[in-house]
Design a protein around this nucleic acid. Structure first.
Lengths: 415, 415
DNA sequence: CTAATTTGTAAAGCGCCCTGACGAAATAGG
DNA sequence: CCTATTTCGTCAGGGCGCTTTACAAATTAG
């Protein structure tokens, strides 16, 4: 049990800096006075906090805002669009992607390349990724941004508070620590590594476009396996070892087909990409031939389903049913506000949802949740994890703006 | 989104008071200097905090501690055993219980009476409960304690941050707000109402006797239905509506027998008390005849199982298997450190565990959790919810000692 | 044009913690 | 036995951060 932060005046100041920054981030351009009203401090206190944030390049003053109401108009404050940037990266089965996001959440640079990472040696893949990160970071610098950190999304289990990829079946990685190679290739750039579904959930939380943003939800994501992330009270649930969210191995039919995990009848056996393809009578090779490139198999399924292919429709209906059963358990256990379908599931949602919602409605005991609006589909689609990664860096800056200055002092200010 | 507390110096002071109090509570008698080292403040700061806590009657000074080491011996601080007390109450199917707990966590007064609350009108039951609370509170006062609040454990769904019992099937209650009657009968005593499994989990968290106390676990409890509570990062997960933990309606076999909740094959259909009795070839009447009083049905099952009754053994094995399947889903989803069996399940644990652990080992994907120590049995047994209720009041005092003084100022100091 | 309202800043004050120093109370060693 | 050392608790001084109070600036209402 680490000391729960030494409640000192400095810590208070840091929290208040973050509070002001978050207020501006969440509620558009704001005057000092309205920030003060929002966070519960006085105008004088907010003034000094804002001064500090402006000096550190996190806020900018837009000049006097247009009048409209009685009284002296305030001077609008906005997040600096030429300040720190979060770099997000994604290692997919068949692609690599990197993007840079500014404090305001806008994507300011982006690259994506096809790259068959499955069963490939790790070294070259990471070298390639570092190369892309350098490109994107350079472009961000040209736009006046300072890269403040890198977060990498991986489709697999990542040990908590580490860069160790314990298992990523889709990549064929097992016990790979991606930290050393990336840190060596990208000196001075703080690194975090996280599960793809987790970062997708964070993207949903911050930029899902829901209003108000749901602070308690289960985010289901899928590439080949099925991952989920649980957000409760606005915080991501990571679990003791960082492995929370393994929805793919929740038992759906305990006597069902054997699963690679050692169990029987796991969700993955009914709603995993491979299982759905098999039930549809399609082979992976066929899919690769007809829809090459990232997301080809999913695209094929969506196309066939849209064309009215009965076998595919039936397969997706079965997958939706299985998802509904597994999620019914999760909903009964966690009482979230909604279930969000994201990642690769987005394009298939129209054919998954009916059965999914039917099962959920049938099996959820909670009387208050009767039906309405229980399941939503992400608007971010397959971009979720990448955006979430970049945003997680931005969020870290918003959560502790003073930490950034300290880091800069250590590394010699970067630029 | 409520203002996230106005980070002022007063708030800091309050948090530091709580920090000091918690340090003393967790680590026995402590000198000012060791408290300071623990919480990360200076000795001088801790001195003033301690002074204030002593003035408020929360801490007492035991006088100079015995030497033993070099240097001036410190003056040991201890929680005041004649300070605030938490009153806990439990409304069971066939009993009412009330207890008082001091700051140190010791039970200082207790009553329990048989009372058939099932399908009885609510008014008389609550009147009786209030009467018992008055008795216990009076006894606590005789011991020098000041009752600081009352928490009531109910076997059913309680709406979040309210005293509304939405549904308690075992009691036959539906949409009953127990707040008005109890508040009217017990003026001046702050009231909270919570689910029995939730409070049992809190008891496990605070007084489970585990070392170190697990901060992430699933606590399974059962009276007639099957409840569970999820503790993550030392905090109880309540869910959007306060209904988290409905393990009883997690699907185990989706095509299984119909359940009262509208679903099919819910855990309750395999591991609920009624289902187990039926599978054992025993009728509730028979059980009531042979083992009257609280917990009679469970006691009968335990007795028969101990005697080697094959049918009962098989029934419990099946229940354990179903529990294992449902919990495998929960463990995959949440990655807790352990699963704790509590409440009425405790006496049956020996016959439930083998199948439960087998299923769990089989179906949990997490490679780090391989087998060892995944399931533990509560040492608190059926006392958990009652103790947890009283402790939740004590915990509230430890979390904000200054709040207590304010409350006293409003109500005119009570005594 | 004046009164009212609101914004942002400055000065004074207060609360809270830290620093540094000191007496008190014990041990260690001669 | 006496002194040096160590640790504890407290006190005075100081720094820091927020609040209070006051005031000039900028706008609307009448």
């Amino acid at each position: 049990m680490a000391a729960p932060l030494p409640n000192t005046q400095q810590a208070m100041r840091r929290r208040n800096l973050s509070l002001v920054l978050h207020a501006v981030a969440a509620h558009g351009p704001l005057s000092r006075a309205s920030v003060a009203a929002r966070v519960g401090l006085t105008r004088a206190a907010v003034s000094t906090l804002v001064d500090e944030l402006i000096r550190d390049g996190l806020l900018v003053e837009l000049g006097p805002s247009r009048p409209g109401t009685v009284g002296r108009p305030g001077s609008a404050l906005q997040l600096n669009e030429r300040g720190p940037a979060g770099i997000g990266a994604e290692i997919g089965v068949d692609h690599l992607a990197v993007c840079a996001v500014d404090l305001g959440g806008r994507v300011r640079a982006r690259t994506e390349v096809a790259s068959a990472n499955r069963d490939r040696t790790v070294g070259p893949a990471l070298a390639r990724l570092a190369e892309l990160v350098r490109q994107v970071a350079a472009e961000a610098v040209r736009e006046g941004l300072r890269p403040a950190g890198l977060a990498v999304a991986v489709p697999g289990l990542v040990a908590r508070d580490s860069s160790l990829v314990v298992r990523a079946p889709n990549l064929g990685w097992e016990g790979v620590d991606v930290g050393p190679a990336l840190r060596a290739a990208l000196p001075g750039l703080p690194l975090t590594v996280d599960n793809e579904a987790n970062l997708g959930a964070l993207a949903e939380l911050w930029r899902g476009g829901h209003d108000p943003a749901p602070r308690d939800f289960v985010h289901v994501s899928a590439e080949i396996g099925i991952g989920a992330a649980v957000v409760l009270d606005g915080r991501l649930l990571r679990g003791t070892h960082g492995f929370a969210g393994e929805l793919g191995h929740v038992p759906v039919r305990p006597e069902g087909p054997a699963c690679a995990c050692g169990g029987r009848g796991c969700l993955e056996q009914y709603a995993g990409e491979e299982a759905v393809l098999r039930a549809s009578g399609l082979s992976p090779e066929q899919a690769a031939a007809q829809h090459p490139g990232p997301g080809g198999r999913i695209a094929l399924l969506a196309e066939r389903a849209a064309d009215g292919d009965r076998r595919v429709r039936r397969a997706l209906d079965g997958a939706g049913e299985a998802l509904g059963i597994a999620l019914a358990g999760a909903v009964n256990l966690l009482d979230p506000r909604t279930v969000v379908l994201g990642g690769a599931l987005t394009p298939l949602a129209p054919w998954l949802l009916p059965a999914l919602e039917r099962e959920l409605a049938l099996r959820v005991a909670d009387p208050a949740r009767s039906g309405q609006g229980a399941v939503t589909v992400s608007r971010l689609g397959s971009d979720g994890p990448l955006l979430g990664a970049a945003h997680s860096v931005v969020q870290a800056v918003l959560d502790d703006p003073a930490g950034l200055r300290e880091a800069a002092a250590v590394t010699g200010s970067g630029a």
